[in-house]
């Protein structure tokens, strides 16, 4: 039994379990062995001074939903891709949009935005006034410029 920090019931009547960063992987492994075979959603919420990463776990057999939360100050969280393959794209998306680095992810690249995009749009301090232009280089890979180039 891995230690948890706190346990509460959310507005949607789902159990919310807060775990510490170092206990995340053992706790998740335990949950997996308890039958939570479906990782429904990975969400990163920017809390300005820290980032919450929220995992919605679901057990197909028991039809049970559990929310696991972890809080990180330096926006690094261990990856759970090894436990649920479905976390792969979810974590890439959250890395892309919120800027959480998932430690141990096999292929941590941006998913939606081009690799050279500056900033993470879902951060609260993201500068929306700055326009970034996406261009394509000779090899068909996208890159970003801040002034409108030829293609625009």
């Amino acid at each position: 039994m891995v230690d948890i920090i706190s346990e509460s019931i959310g507005k949607d009547n789902r159990k919310i379990i807060l775990v510490s960063l170092e206990n995340l992987i053992p706790f998740m492994k335990e949950m997996r062995s308890k039958g939570f075979d479906h990782l429904s959603l990975v969400t990163a919420v920017d809390r300005k001074d820290s980032i919450d990463v929220v995992y919605h776990l679901h057990s197909m057999e028991r039809n049970e939903y559990v929310v696991v939360k972890v809080n990180t100050k330096n926006s690094v969280v261990p990856s759970v891709t090894g436990i649920w393959p479905s976390a792969n794209w979810d974590e890439r998306e959250q890395y892309d949009l919120v800027g959480v680095k998932f430690d141990g992810h096999p292929n941590l690249k941006r998913l939606f935005l081009p690799e050279s995009w500056v900033g993470h749009p879902l951060r609260k301090d993201y500068d929306l006034s700055k326009v970034q232009y996406i261009n394509m280089d000779e090899d068909g890979e996208d890159y970003v410029t801040f002034d409108a180039g030829d293609g625009w």
């Binding site: 507005k11 949607d12 429904s40 959603l41 929220v54 919605h56 929310v67």
Partner: peptide, 29 residues
Amino acid sequence: EYYARTESSKGEFGVYIVADGGVKPYRVR
């Protein structure tokens, strides 16, 4: 915060809203 899941034509469609008491949602996933 509320996570609602519904069955869309493609599968489980979930909307996770985190609210902070304002008139706009704090985070929608």
